[in-house]
Simulated scan of single mutants.
Amino acid sequence: MSGPAPALRVEGLGVRYGALVALEGVSWEVAPGEILGIIGPNGAGKSSCYDATTNMAPRSGRVWISGEEVTAVPPHGLAERGLKRAFQQNAFFAALTVRDNMVAVLAREAGTGLLQSLALPWREASRRHALEAEAAAILERFAVPREMHGLRPGNIPYGSQRMLSIALAFGRGARVLMLDEPAAGLGGADMARLIALLRSLRGEGIALVVIEHHMDLIMSVADRIVVLEQGRCIANGTPQQIQADPRVLEAYLGQAA
């Protein structure tokens, strides 16, 4: 008797830009409550893998979410099915407060337009209040403290901006959350908050796919790691197996030593 389907599975992903092969024959899967790390040198194909998985780039191969094939589903349809992604660059509405950024995401997920969500008529004031309360709770869950909620994102610390971007991507929830270098520019207490968040989300049964250059982070939180080089997967295993793999040491870890 087979076990439950992976939260996300990709098979034979390929991306070509003219004669350039950015990704070829890449396959992996991640289970609910698991953190999968994707690492590799610059130009290894990590971003192409990210874009191919979420149908943000023309590609070959197949993709499944919880056993349902979603190869032909557009990016917004993938989000509706629980596959969410956060980008390398912080993504938010700079002119809105932190709270209103979150309210806008929640309203959009509920089928309400952005303008309506930010200017609900007086007869819907209670709905607006409920959205604000929900937004505040999510922001605090993602380590964005309440005293920052009334500020614009550009006026809060960089580490909190990174957490805000992850919160906005996550919204009301996800089966799978893909993060592209979430630790970029972080250190100290900010890094500790990110690690705690990733472990908390994993503990809630969410599957996480984390592209990361920060080796200490990925080795400490990932359950399994996929290593890419020149668009191909050269290793797939636990952090301990990856650290001992001579192909990885030659292609990536050895270069960083």
Rank of each mutant, 00 (worst) to 15 (best):
E147K: 12
G173L: 09
L228F: 09
L115A: 15
G154F: 08
F93P: 03
L36R: 09
I65L: 15
R108A: 15
E11M: 02
F142Y: 10
G154Q: 11
T238R: 06
P41N: 12
A189R: 14
E204V: 03
P182L: 04
F142L: 09
M102E: 02
L197H: 00
G187V: 08
P4W: 01
P157T: 09
P74H: 09
G187T: 09
L164S: 09
A133R: 13
G205N: 08
V105M: 04
G77I: 01
I35R: 08
A104W: 10
R99E: 13
L228T: 00
Y158F: 15
S27A: 10
V105D: 11
A72N: 10
A244W: 08
A137F: 07
A222F: 07
R175T: 11
S220D: 15
E29V: 00
Q241P: 00
R175V: 09
A257H: 13
A143E: 15
V226M: 11
I234V: 13
P239E: 10
P121N: 13
L139K: 01
N42I: 02
L179A: 06
I65N: 05
A169W: 10
I39A: 10
I65S: 04
Y252L: 00
E147Y: 14
I195G: 05
L179N: 05
G14Q: 02
Y17T: 01
F170W: 13
L131D: 01
A235D: 09
I38Q: 06
V227M: 08
